[in-house]
Design a protein around this nucleic acid. Structure first.
Lengths: 366, 366
DNA sequence: AAGCGCAAAGAGACCGGTCTCTTTTAGGAA
DNA sequence: TTCCTAAAAGAGACCGGTCTCTTTGCGCTT
């Protein structure tokens, strides 16, 4: 048994070169797959590499080439199936193009997001895909550009930032949802979101720092106002960013003097909590309470009643973001593209005319 | 405006040293936070770094130190909420200890898994956490050890591999679930899993290459046999690895001459499909069909009826895996630890005595 | 005043690749 | 046979940090 390979330290090109009796440069050419080498030399090098169990050091490679073959992704919460799908879309495209994905969780916290981005840039990822927690503090996002790395915003565009973005048509979707409820006769419609302000209170759409949510609330308010509903802003509820918070908030909401007859949930995690509470409190759905949620999570089709949802093309959004980023990495220099993908209102059975037993007139809307 | 910073290329320690009038070594000491430096020098260097917008190159740093501050994670499918939670657990612990997470998807394909691991090792991650798709081909897993990186197996242990692992007590859980069903009077109990063999047919537990699933099936078969149910193996169904496949398989299963009166789903994605089909076909649950699933996915509490599940401490498993890995990185050299976390049978209302209207006798089991 | 010890700073090798530039070798044309 | 050209191989700088080893400078002892 002559397996006596030094094991103390991994084999390098220099080691392989020495064993195969060629120069370091030639060995590097073979192992790195560039330049021209004779068949004879190639064979010798390959054999030596095999014998030594040579594994390239991608770190060293990246340092000289300046490319790491890695894209950084910063999302709010991977546990949220919304981001789960998006990340899957990203990583499928990435892999197909030979890129790796480094994932970081921001927990929707700007400070954490800033740190994550700093680390990723320091690690020399080739580019980044970020779902920015807020669109007010954008210094750290601009830094990405300064560092010469392309950035693609996912799910949340930022007007002040001239970079590629992929979002769903949140505004339009919110309008459609609100209109659907209004047309069913609802006048007390609440909008519940994980998004928050320092005061936990809603006063102005300018206080909402998450772009997608702001758009939705604007659409919600506008359609409500158009329908002649007074004091729409009072129906906006912020801070449902954990299941506990969502719970407490919903219970308070339903216990108010004039509770809502319909709730719009800003994500499927919130919708789930609302669903649970309605069930616990014996509120019949949709008669006692109508519910619509953003994000067509898998479970929404399977409840009783199944939930009417805004279907966002989440996986596709991830794919598109990755594709745009990789185009930039391949030298694309066109003006920033703001891709807005259409959504789909999937009517199931969680919306009814308030206070009736029947599911009410089936009104088709897109 | 004297912002004329060269912008062509990022500032390096050498640049900072030059501007601040100290040696490269001193500048490096300040910027790298090691060695001893005078306050005067420190100030000068910091100021220069500020002026030049210096950002450390983590790549170069990793190359000399040999540590990248990164842990690699390879899972079957991030879109599966099971892995979503686990990854969240991993990344929370990682971040708290100053590590980054590089995520790779294997799609439960060994070849993809091998490639992912190879890349991660080449990128010099400090250690890996892997959910191995199969426990037959383990060469690429052994290579991780050869490369001097610790490995922790997540959710699926491999007897032949002497490394740390974190799993749920799958065997025990499967036994409890099967016993629950048997005690309710079920004799036709099917087990549906995403796991597959080349023939798509189940013949022997040795054909099952995913450790956790094998354990479960063994427990399932044993309890069934003990209860005197003949030909248990015929109830094992493989290959429900996409929602389409799960669908087709379930439809076939329910259409057989003697359909099952109860189904055990190996993961929540499969359970969801089964639920959908039952609803479509007008099969009342639990009277017409009992259902139990592994993984306490959020939605299982909210359906009608809510689903009886095996609660696995998924987030905790991720946390534990990360913790064990980091211990190894900090020099822990004890014998491989095989951590098996207990599960919990959460009885809800999807299990009943077959063919009755009532939910049957409520039998407590753990 | 000489000697000692330690903090602070500098010089330069090193990590493991890539890549430019130079030198050697081989093959074909004149 | 000589010359020219292109392919193949080699030498060594370089990427941007870390780190060892050496030198310098200062305060303190005796």
């Amino acid at each position: 048994m002559k397996e006596a390979q030094p094991k103390t330290t991994a084999a390098t090109v220099a080691d392989v070169a020495r064993l195969s009796g060629v120069s370091k440069a030639t060995a590097a050419r073979v192992l790195g797959g560039y330049g021209t080498v004779s068949d004879k030399a190639r064979d010798a090098v390959m054999q030596a590499a095999q014998a030594l169990g040579y594994r390239p050091n991608e770190l060293a490679r990246s340092m000289t080439t300046g490319r790491s073959g890695t894209i950084g992704v910063v999302v709010g919460d991977i546990e949220n199936p919304f981001f789960g799908s998006a990340v899957r879309g990203i990583s499928d495209v990435a892999r197909a193009s030979g890129f790796n994905v480094v994932l970081a969780n921001s927990g929707e916290d700007v400070a954490a997001e800033r740190m994550a981005i700093e680390t990723l840039v320091a690690k020399r990822v080739d580019g980044l895909i970020v779902s920015p927690a807020q669109d007010s503090a954008i210094g750290h996002l601009e830094d990405i550009g300064h560092a010469g790395r392309p950035l693609v915003l996912l799910d949340r565009a930022i007007a002040a930032l001239a970079v590629d973005s992929v979002t769903a048509d949140d505004r339009q979707a919110a309008e459609a949802v609100t209109r659907l409820l209004v047309e069913h006769g609802h006048r007390q419609i609440a909008y519940v979101t994980a998004c928050d302000t320092p005061t936990h209170l809603y006063r102005d759409t300018r206080d909402i720092l998450t772009a997608s949510v702001r758009e939705r609330i604007e659409g919600f308010l506008q359609v409500g106002a158009q329908a002649g509903i007074a004091d729409m802003p009072r129906w906006v509820r912020l801070g449902a960013n954990t299941s506990d918070a969502a719970r407490r908030l919903t219970i308070d909401l339903l216990g108010e003097a004039t509770p809502p007859s319909a709730i719009i949930a800003s994500d499927s995690l919130i919708a789930l909590e609302i669903f649970k509470i309605a069930r616990e409190q014996g509120i019949a759905m949709p008669d006692g309470l109508s519910l619509v949620t953003f994000h067509d999570a898998a479970w929404t089709a399977v409840t009783t009643p199944p939930v009417t949802v805004v279907r966002q093309p989440v996986y596709d959004m991830g794919e598109a973001a990755a594709r745009m980023l990789i185009e930039r990495l391949n030298g694309e220099t066109c003006a920033p593209r703001r891709l807005i993908l259409p959504t789909q209102l999937v009517e199931r059975a969680s919306v009814a005319v308030p206070g009736t037993d029947a599911a009410g007139p089936r009104i088709r809307r897109l």
